[in-house]
Amino acid sequence: MTAIVNVEAYWFTVVGYWVIIAIAVMVEFVARRRPEFIAPLFDMLDHVMHTRMARIGLIAAWWWFGWHFFVGPTL
């Protein structure tokens, strides 16, 4: 019984990630069709990264993601 619940919880969690990714893709899709209403992702990043805090924060987040998987004990 626990094994079945575990499998269901596993796929529920995985599907949750995909749903969130799908929402991001949909937002970007709408943004590219109507960029004057919603700025596309990289246009928005270009604007936001004007401040040093955002610029360094975003690039540090990207760098840490690589560090986490290549260098650190991931799990």
């Binding site: 969130i20 929402i23 991001a24 937002v27 943004a31 960029p35 004057e36 209403f37 919603i38 700025a39 596309p40 992702l41 246009d43 928005m44 270009d46 604007h47 936001v48 990264m49 004007h50 610029r55």
Partner: peptide, 22 residues
């Protein structure tokens, strides 16, 4: 670095809000 605005401010605001929420 210099700002290179190409879109209306409200478009940036909507975009940053939506992507931040996601």
């Amino acid at each position: 670095t210099p700002d290179r605005d190409r879109r209306p401010d409200r478009a940036y605001a909507r975009s940053s809000t939506l992507f931040s929420l996601v």
